[in-house]
Nucleic acid binder design. Structure first.
Lengths: 137, 137
DNA sequence: CTAGTTGCAAAAGCTTTGCATGCAT
DNA sequence: ATGCATGCAAAGCTTTTGCAACTAG
């Protein structure tokens, strides 16, 4: 907890109970959570917590590189703890989103592609994950 | 026009005036159009056209590989004429979306990544385009 | 202190849905 | 003829906004 406050201090943002809880959820979950799911996970600890507040906190985290934002499968935004550039895979069979690191591809690490300055980049892959392919669940 | 009807026939879908117009807009525009923009472009020619119809037509086109669907910048869906796999670049300066072809990257053409079967893939790049970098508009 | 945060409630989109009417084949 | 498409209007959802009350530093 003390460490989290320090992280916030380094980023120059205030440490409120709401922010601490949101941060903890992201850290403890390696997955990709919709805003509402994050809200559900902490609303018991924070009486009167507002969904709008969670939205604003996540937006702040995203801007301060304390969290990553994921748009996949055209429905709702999800957030994750990793703020660095990596990619995502969506399995149409089980519906799960997983991280995908693709090292060694020049075009994906370059700061310039076709004359354009690249500041951020997200790759979304769709298909069937290895678990579902092998018939397991 | 006759060719378009044939295209539809090959895909096994009926040729309605609404579908023809939507198809024409996508072909004539090399850009990426929000659903509403497509609706606006043809509603004069088709009295009583409904936005819901345009949605349904675009969904059909996407499924039949007659159009591509683009989710970028987390706002609304856009559609484009290219149904094949390619990528997109969003310029934060001018707000324009452009196509980005990235040939020669194994991870982006492979049918399998980390054991997962890849059926579709979209790369979204964010930054500043070459026009805005050079100060031009 | 006081600038930055939160909670609440309402508004704002975009997209989907249901059903009756109409049309393509 | 008849099954598929369309139009209309309303509902559904996620996300945003405005503002008063509150609080962390």
């Amino acid at each position: 907890v003390k460490e989290i406050v320090d992280v916030f201090k380094q980023k120059g943002i205030r440490a409120t109970p709401q922010r601490l809880e949101v941060y903890k959820v992201l850290q403890n979950q390696s997955g990709h959570l919709p805003v509402e799911a994050i809200y559900e996970k902490i609303k018991d600890k924070l009486p009167g917590l507002s969904l709008a507040t969670v939205y604003s906190i996540l937006e702040l985290f995203r801007d301060k590189k304390l969290a990553g934002e994921v748009w996949i499968k055209s429905d709702k935004v999800c957030f994750e703890s990793r703020p660095d550039i990596h990619h995502h895979f969506y399995c149409r069979a089980c519906g799960k989103i997983s991280d995908l690191d693709i090292p060694g591809c020049a075009a994906l690490t370059s700061k310039e592609v076709a004359g354009n300055l690249i500041e951020d980049l997200q790759g979304y892959f769709y298909g069937v994950c290895f678990k579902c392919r092998s018939g397991k669940k």
